[in-house]
Simulated assay, not measured.
Amino acid sequence: MGLLTIGTFAKASRLSPKALRLYDELGLLTPACVDPVTGYRLYAPEQLDQARLVAWLRRLGMPLVRIRHVCTLEAGPAAQEIRAFWAQVEADTAARRDLATFLIDRLSGKEPAMSATAKPLGIRYAALSDTGLVRASNQDIAYAGSGRCWYGPGPRSRCHP
Rank of each mutant, 00 (worst) to 15 (best):
residue 1 M to Q: 11
residue 1 M to H: 12
residue 3 L to S: 12
residue 4 L to K: 06
residue 5 T to N: 06
residue 11 K to S: 10
residue 12 A to W: 07
residue 15 L to T: 01
residue 15 L to G: 02
residue 17 P to F: 07
residue 21 R to L: 00
residue 21 R to K: 05
residue 22 L to C: 01
residue 22 L to G: 01
residue 22 L to M: 03
residue 22 L to P: 03
residue 25 E to T: 04
residue 28 L to E: 00
residue 30 T to F: 01
residue 32 A to Y: 05
residue 34 V to L: 03
residue 36 P to Q: 03
residue 37 V to E: 07
residue 37 V to R: 05
residue 38 T to R: 00
residue 41 R to Y: 02
residue 45 P to A: 06
residue 46 E to K: 10
residue 47 Q to N: 07
residue 50 Q to F: 05
residue 53 L to I: 07
residue 53 L to W: 09
residue 55 A to F: 02
residue 56 W to D: 15
residue 57 L to V: 04
residue 59 R to S: 08
residue 61 G to H: 03
residue 64 L to N: 00
residue 65 V to I: 10
residue 66 R to G: 04
residue 66 R to P: 05
residue 67 I to N: 04
residue 67 I to Q: 02
residue 71 C to F: 04
residue 79 A to F: 10
residue 80 Q to N: 11
residue 82 I to G: 05
residue 84 A to E: 13
residue 84 A to Q: 14
residue 85 F to G: 02
residue 85 F to W: 07
residue 88 Q to P: 04
residue 88 Q to F: 07
residue 88 Q to G: 15
residue 88 Q to R: 15
residue 96 R to M: 10
residue 96 R to P: 07
residue 96 R to A: 15
residue 98 D to Y: 03
residue 99 L to I: 05
residue 99 L to T: 08
residue 100 A to T: 06
residue 101 T to M: 08
residue 101 T to C: 11
residue 103 L to T: 04
residue 105 D to M: 01
residue 106 R to K: 08
residue 107 L to V: 09
residue 109 G to A: 02
residue 110 K to H: 15
residue 113 A to E: 07
residue 114 M to Y: 09
residue 116 A to E: 14
residue 118 A to W: 01
residue 121 L to N: 03
residue 121 L to H: 00
residue 122 G to M: 13
residue 123 I to Y: 14
residue 123 I to L: 14
residue 126 A to S: 11
residue 127 A to W: 11
residue 127 A to Y: 12
residue 128 L to W: 09
residue 132 G to K: 03
residue 132 G to I: 04
residue 134 V to M: 11
residue 135 R to C: 13
residue 135 R to W: 11
residue 135 R to L: 13
residue 135 R to A: 15
residue 136 A to D: 14
residue 137 S to E: 15
residue 137 S to K: 13
residue 139 Q to A: 14
residue 142 A to G: 11
residue 144 A to F: 11
residue 144 A to C: 10
residue 145 G to H: 08
residue 146 S to I: 13
residue 146 S to M: 12
residue 147 G to Y: 11
residue 151 Y to C: 12
residue 156 R to G: 09
residue 158 R to E: 13
residue 158 R to W: 12
residue 159 C to S: 12
